[in-house]
Simulated assay, not measured.
Amino acid sequence: MAIEADKKGHPRKVTVGSASAPFALNLTEATRARPQHLRSWYRISSAASHSSSWLVQQASALDEKGQLVMYADADTICAATLSVLAAFEDLTHTLGTYHGRDPRRAVATVQSRTKAVLMRQARWRDQMRRDIHELYG
């Protein structure tokens, strides 16, 4: 195994035998390869990649004492969870295939969990609509 460094000494690529892989991840290429994961990946990664604070700003407020508090944003929680599940789905498929196993059953399990997250998100949105209607008519 060999690790190649860039001009600054940071790891650039790893080579094992005849196979090599870069350390850098091109998020645009990754989302093209898995378009069904695009929305959740973009929501979580855009704040970091654009050095933006919108993700934190939408999940913070002042409490009754004027102290900054963080609260959970359902869409952000779902996006983060979907991002992890998407990566886990890809990893499950890759490892199963690499080890000569049929990964379809394990991948289906991850996909069923992904569906459960999406259903939960839909319930949260429905509750939000009911709350808004109750508050504002």
Rank of each mutant, 00 (worst) to 15 (best):
R105P: 06
A108C: 04
L82D: 03
S18K: 01
L27G: 04
D63A: 03
L55M: 13
S83C: 08
W41M: 08
A47P: 01
Y42E: 08
E4H: 10
Y98C: 05
L91E: 13
A61N: 09
R32H: 12
T81V: 12
A80G: 11
T81K: 05
M70I: 06
S20G: 00
Q57V: 04
T114P: 02
G96S: 02
S60D: 07
T109L: 13
R101A: 14
H10N: 15
T81S: 11
V84L: 14
A59G: 15
P103E: 01
H10M: 09
Y71H: 13
R113K: 13
R120N: 11
G100R: 02
E89D: 10
L95D: 01
K115N: 13
P35T: 03
Q67F: 06
R105K: 14
D75A: 07
V110D: 01
Q111V: 08
R125N: 15
Y42L: 15
A74D: 08
A47V: 06
S46R: 09
A74F: 07
K65E: 09
A59L: 05
R105H: 12
A80H: 05
Y98I: 13
D63W: 06
T94E: 07
A24P: 02
E64Y: 08
P11M: 00
T81C: 09
S53I: 09
P11F: 02
L55S: 05
P103M: 02
K8R: 09
A87V: 09
Q121N: 07
P103N: 00
S20V: 00
E64D: 12
K115E: 15
D90G: 06
R39W: 09
A87L: 10
V110A: 01
R101M: 14
A108W: 03
G96T: 02
A72G: 06
T114Q: 12
A30P: 03
K65L: 11
Y98M: 14
E4N: 12
Y42S: 10
A48E: 07
A108P: 04
R105A: 14
G9V: 03
G17E: 01
D90K: 05
E64P: 05
Q111F: 04
H37P: 01
D6Y: 03
I44E: 06
S53A: 12
T97K: 08
D73M: 13
I77F: 14
K8A: 15
A106H: 09
E64K: 13
Y42Q: 09
A33Y: 02
W124V: 12
S49L: 14
P103I: 02
R39A: 14
K65S: 13
L25Q: 13
A86W: 03
S49Q: 11
S18N: 06
L38H: 11
S46V: 13
A30T: 13
T94M: 08
T109G: 08
R120C: 10
Q58V: 10
P22L: 11
K13F: 00
A47L: 01
L118N: 15
E64V: 12
A24F: 12
W124R: 10
V69I: 15
I3D: 00
A80K: 06
Q58T: 05
N26G: 01
A30Y: 07
S18Y: 00
